[in-house]
């Protein structure tokens, strides 16, 4: 995998970056999640279900289906942020923005360089025409080399739901760490 040295703010993925303008002024819900990876894992599901209930409380049409989809996606994004955080920064921020027939979900975490490179690799793969084949290849490779992580979460979201995903990466001065903002647009009807 190509190693990318980050020395300025960069943006990756298939989300239109201009969409981010003024977005944080429209936040409906924000949350700071201090978390211990194994002890508090169940909180990922609790928080994703809470965010989902909050989003869908006033919906009437297709509520059950939308709830299931949102909870699946949000849980995956929270798990992703926690798994890829640097060990001394066990805190992630999450933001929810409710627009017309669209939800923007943002996670913020601090990641080491290796995890940042993995994320950039995945973001570049989002532009691939056959994401399903990439997912199956990752599954086969993970099986062959007995890798611990699945690494299919973001690709699965991009392939199966009406989402676009972008990552803004900001290097943290005098460290080898980066602030990762993962922005996901989820459209529904």
């Amino acid at each position: 995998m190509k190693q990318t040295k980050i020395n300025k703010i960069t943006f990756w993925g298939n989300l239109d970056e201009s969409k981010l303008k003024y977005l944080k002024n429209k936040i409906s819900l924000s949350f700071k999640m201090p978390i211990k990876h194994t002890e508090d894992w169940k909180k990922c599901s609790i928080i994703s279900n809470f965010f989902t209930d909050y989003c869908t409380s006033s919906m009437f049409k297709n509520k059950k289906e939308i709830k299931s989809i949102l909870s699946t996606i949000i849980n995956e994004l929270i798990e992703n942020a926690i798994k890829h955080s640097y060990k001394d920064y066990n805190e992630i921020n999450i933001f929810l923005i409710n627009l017309d027939n669209e939800i923007i979900f943002i996670t913020e975490n601090i990641a080491p360089q290796d995890n940042t490179n993995n994320l950039i690799h995945t973001m570049n793969q989002l532009k691939h025409s056959n994401i399903e084949s990439l997912i199956l290849n990752r599954i086969k490779n993970n099986f062959m080399y007995n890798q611990e992580n699945s690494e299919i979460g973001l690709l699965n979201i991009a392939n199966n739901y009406r989402t676009t995903i972008g990552a803004r990466i900001t290097p943290i001065e005098k460290t080898k760490l980066n602030k990762i903002e993962l922005i996901t647009s989820i459209k529904y009807e």
């Binding site: 299931s68 849980n75 798990e79 599954i139 993970n142 099986f143 992580n149 699945s150 299919i152 979460g153």
Partner: peptide, 13 residues
């Protein structure tokens, strides 16, 4: 009701 990507990977294995 739910199975996360780690579970899907395990099932696929």
């Amino acid at each position: 009701e739910y199975l996360n990507s780690s579970g899907i990977t395990s099932l696929a294995r």
